[in-house]
Design a protein around this nucleic acid. Structure first.
Lengths: 112, 112
DNA sequence: TCACTACATGTAGCTTTACTACTCATGTCG
DNA sequence: CGACATGAGTAGTAAAGCTACATGTAGTGA
């Protein structure tokens, strides 16, 4: 997977990972890894700053939770986050359709 | 379209635009615009540096052409460029499948 | 007990890549 | 003549993910 292939598409996936309920960062990381068949095995240096970005943007709300001596930062979608997710889904459909069209498949010239 | 949605995917599309024969930069630009239904209306500041990048990488070969007082820089795929295009197509399929899976569609909870 | 691994969060600095905002030049159409 | 499409290019900027690190707890196996 190219280094910056997911530039601009990560936020949508993070929001989607939070759609079914609040999750903490590490869990979000595993959702991405599992849901992509291991292709998106993102380092913590990617995931945590991205979540903070979404928090600053008002798309998620965060709180600390302590369970069994384990502190976790739990993120939850806001209304704005749901709207953003919907927008991202729409944008992704348009984007991926356009790229798929432009990228081929290679139609080899007819040999009559 | 999000500002840097195509980070990392542009090169493949440029290579694809050159697959059916040599083209100059401006023509490549129009292939992307037309082929995306107007969604990828990229500024020259994006397209020309990108083509030079591909040239440096050895994926395209460039030459000057003069027609009717109009100088054009014509780009052509190299063997390495064809390999790269094939790789990009494969990477795109994996990538887009993973994103599509992760992004949804939203399965709303059953209401029995 | 000690080491190692999984869990859990985070930051500083780097790199890549596309975008903005220009410059320069020719041909054509009103 | 002026505006616009064609055609190529650069300098500087911003964004976003990655690398490499720091920090700490809990569990597991030797």
């Amino acid at each position: 997977m190219s280094a910056q292939a997911l530039k601009g598409h990560l936020d949508g996936m993070l929001l989607a990972a939070l759609e079914d309920g609040p999750r903490h960062g590490y869990a979000v990381m595993e959702v991405l890894r599992a849901g992509s068949g291991g292709r998106f095995d993102l380092p913590t240096g990617t995931i945590y700053p991205a979540l903070r970005r979404l928090e600053r943007a008002g798309h998620v709300r965060a709180r600390w939770s302590e369970e069994g001596g384990r502190r976790r930062r739990v993120y939850e979608l806001t209304a704005s986050g749901r709207r953003a997710l919907s927008d991202e889904r729409h944008a992704w459909q348009e984007f991926s359709a356009a790229v798929t069209t432009l990228l081929g498949p290679h139609r080899r010239p007819a040999t009559p």
